[in-house]
Amino acid sequence: MTPGVLWTTVLLASVACFALKLAGHLVPEHWLADERVQRTSALVTVALLASLVVVQTVGDGQAVVLDARVPALAVAAVALALRAPFVVVVVLAAGAAAGLRALGWG
C-alpha cells in the first residue's frame, strides 16, 4: 500500500472502531433496565471473562498453543483458592511462566 492508502486505511479503521464502541454506549438505558436483561448482562460478564481467560491462555493468533501459560494459570488458580490478593495472583502467574521459559520450556 502507498503511504496515502495506508493513512486512509488507518483513519477509516479508527473511525469505524470508535463508532462501534460509541454505539454500545448509546444503547437506550431503559432497554437495559428489564430484570431479564440485567440477569443476562451478569451472565454475559461471566462468559466474557471466562472466554478471555481461554483466549489469553491457549490462543496464539488463530491457533491453540499449550505452553508455559497453562501451568502459570494453574498456579494462579491455586493462589485464588488460597484467597491470595489480586496482585499476588498476577505476579505469581507471570513468575511461573517466566521461570518455565527461562528453563527452556514453553
Partner: peptide, 16 residues
Amino acid sequence: AWGLDAAAAAAFLALV
C-alpha cells in the same frame, strides 16, 4: 519472556 501473557490470563481468571 517476562510472563506478561500469563499475567493477563491470571488477571482475567482472578476477575471471574
